[in-house]
Amino acid sequence: MGQVMKPQQRQLLYAGLTVMLVVIWIFYSANGPQTTAVLAGTVRAATLLALGAMCGMIGERSGVVNIGIEGQFLLSAFAAFTIASMTGSLFMGTVAGIGMGLMMGWLLAAMAVGLKVDQIIAGTVLNIAALGLTSFFYDRSRSLGMGKYTNIDLGPLADIPLVGTVFFSRPPLTYLTMALLVVVHVALFRSVWGMRTRAIGEHPGAADTVGIDVLRLRYLNVTLAGGLAGLGGAYLALEAVGTFSRAMSGGRGFLALAVMIFGRRTPFGAYAAALFFGFTTALQNQFQLNNTFDIPPQFVGMLPFVVTIVVVALSGLVGSMRDPAALGQNYEKG
């Protein structure tokens, strides 16, 4: 459905997976704890990217480019952190983060869909506004008294070697993200909403002539997608880091877009891509921790960004990765 894989692509995928599993097994046999740490770090870094990518893909499937994910992450993280610190409740903080994400999504929709501002500029407004607002209101004295979200073991599953630690002994928002991947997949490719969403991104005129309100659906989708980025912000502040700092999103809102493209705008594809990006980050952390190689940290730090450039360049060269036809174009009736 939606994105059909060719047999060769499928074979390539299986071959790649097999090789990967073998490599992981070899490393695990050689150095168990370190392999586990790298893979756990991979999943940790992938969660934020996956949420951002889902936010981006719902927008893009509807024909709206969202380059403001970075700002959505940042302001939602700020809201989540501030409310959690004020109320003493991580849950309330998470709700606030999602709420802020929805508001930012609504603002983007109001500009890009309602006011027909150029979509790239609209997203840039979000990014600059988020940076300015969080810096202005940032209060250094705040902290999370109760600490951040902690791991929850999923019963016996958590006891499986390697896999258990990596996937089944995680904090709550990571589980929520994994569940959302399934939900978004089913919604996009099986539901009426998803079919209409894909239609307005490919050919809004066609959707319009069968009575689908293109602008309203875009409004709704961009707003809802903002909620996913908001959850990402909450995850960043309350689960991954446990505090807020200036510009803490650190470009991951942009990386999420690359993850989305690499994952062909499908949730599972995006998660695979997110794991790959997460792996580079986790590896970088391990290198730095252990001084494994004598590579300056700045060069390791560049890696995800360089990889993104390569990915975006390749996605243009590889014809199979096609953008939704109406992506980036504001829709005028008639």
Partner: peptide, 29 residues
């Protein structure tokens, strides 16, 4: 029937025909 066809090219014939008036089962198309 518009002069410029109002069809979604990467979707199937059946999806194009029912778009906007989709039969559903358990909330899914």
């Amino acid at each position: 029937v518009h002069q410029h066809f109002q069809l979604v090219p990467p979707m199937r014939v059946v999806e194009n025909i029912v778009l906007g008036d989709e039969p559903t089962k358990r909330g899914l198309v």
